[in-house]
Amino acid sequence: MERTIIKSENFNAYFGNNHVVKNVNIEIERNKVIAVMGPSGCGKTTYLRCINRLHELIEGARCDGKMLLNGQDVYNMHPIFTRLKIGMVFQRPNPFPNLSIYDNVIAGYVLNGIKMSKADKNDIVEKSLTSAALWKEVKDSLHKKGTFLSGGQQQRLCIARAIAMEPEVLLLDEPTSALDPISTSSIEELLKELKNNFTLIIVTHNMQQAARVSDKTAFFYMGELVEYDDTKKMFTNPDDIRTQNYITGRFS
């Protein structure tokens, strides 16, 4: 199996005439946690949303260049297939409010019209909730609404929902910014576990979080990928002065 799972080649993204991601070239390795950081408006979230083709859903948005998943350009795939392979967890926990915990986990299958036996569903629910470190807490209340859970639990439910589809890559857009420190810590621990089975790309404003959870870090500034390297190197001796100024809080 190829080590590289995601590869961007001369990738650009635009909102109308606004060029927000500029000629990004990056190779992301399988089973790693990648942190994407940069100041607000640097294009990091847009880049993340381009990976599973959410960017194109916005009116006036477009992109060019290549975004390869296992060597195949995701822009030549069916977008639904892309999103099955590349799941996403958003900033605010967003379980379906009318669905139970159980139904939230298998929502991806139901919405895609995939029919399964009860036993298979049970199996997927238990496996996904266990992987999301939520099973023990909710196994006796699977048919309660997901919105009854705490914020941290809801976010882990969203992670369970995303991994239930067995994606290869999981994109996380500031997944702990709405959570308290304890819930944040449990999500961070979970990310370390999840990387055994998935490749995780996390956009975060919290630099300590990037340092704690990721193997590699990408720093974006004004739409450009300034630097991409091992997290330890990025946080001890970055090559680019812009990276250093950003991580040391001296950015103007």
Partner: peptide, 9 residues
């Protein structure tokens, strides 16, 4: 402050 990079060094 959890310093990093040149500040940490």
């Amino acid at each position: 402050y959890q310093p990093v990079a040149i500040d940490l060094r």
